[in-house]
Simulated scan of single mutants.
Amino acid sequence: MTTRWLTPEEQRAWRAYNAASRLLEDVIDRQLQQEGGMPHLFYMVLANLSEAPDRRLRMTDLAETLKITRSRLTYAVTRLERDGLVRREDCRRDRRSSLAVLTDEGMAVLERTAPGHVETVRSALFDRLTPEQVGQLAEICTGIARGLQDEDPGAGAGDLPWRRRSSCSP
């Protein structure tokens, strides 16, 4: 098999993407740690639960939405549960599943933290783009995500994070 090396333009784009994504994640994480005492992942758990019917989602569905492993989600929910921001419930329809539920305290923390988070996202990302670039960014990211999720399972899509089992699972 011949290696398909990146062209100089692809290398430039790849490195720019890496730098921007790491810097953006760092800015967002710092803001959320300072204002909400939580990392970005925890905020995203709260935000997704706040948008769900009755502020509850099956853990498997939440992991898929967040594009993370179930074990990483379990860790995050356990920490949020300890802080009283989320609680777990058994799923009545599927005994193997559990639900993550946003508590009133979790909703209050989210409402208190959201304005600063939105301002950080706006100033760090969207204020630096033209309206045309915002549309292009959405189109590019959607295309990449769709392509990675729709791949043939033999090509890696079967190994998507939310489908992975931890090494401790039976």
Rank of each mutant, 00 (worst) to 15 (best):
M1F: 10
T2P: 15
R4Q: 14
L6C: 09
A19W: 14
S21T: 15
L23N: 12
L24N: 07
E25V: 08
E25C: 05
R30W: 09
Q31S: 07
E35A: 08
G36C: 09
G37E: 03
P39F: 05
H40G: 07
L41V: 07
M44S: 14
V45G: 01
A47C: 03
S50Q: 03
R55S: 12
L57W: 10
M59T: 11
A63Y: 01
T65Y: 09
L66V: 12
K67C: 08
R70E: 00
Y75W: 14
Y75R: 10
T78H: 06
R79E: 09
R79P: 00
E81A: 11
R82N: 10
L85A: 01
V86T: 11
R88C: 08
D94N: 13
R96G: 00
R96L: 04
R96D: 01
T103V: 07
E105M: 04
G106R: 02
A108P: 03
A108M: 10
L110C: 06
L110H: 06
R112G: 07
H117P: 01
V118E: 11
V118M: 12
V121R: 05
R128Y: 06
L129A: 08
L129T: 07
P131S: 02
A138N: 05
I140W: 15
I140R: 13
C141Y: 12
L148Q: 13
Q149D: 15
E151G: 06
E151M: 14
D152L: 13
G156Q: 10
D159R: 15
D159C: 10
P161K: 01
R163F: 11
R164L: 15
S166Y: 08
S167C: 07
S167P: 05
P170D: 00
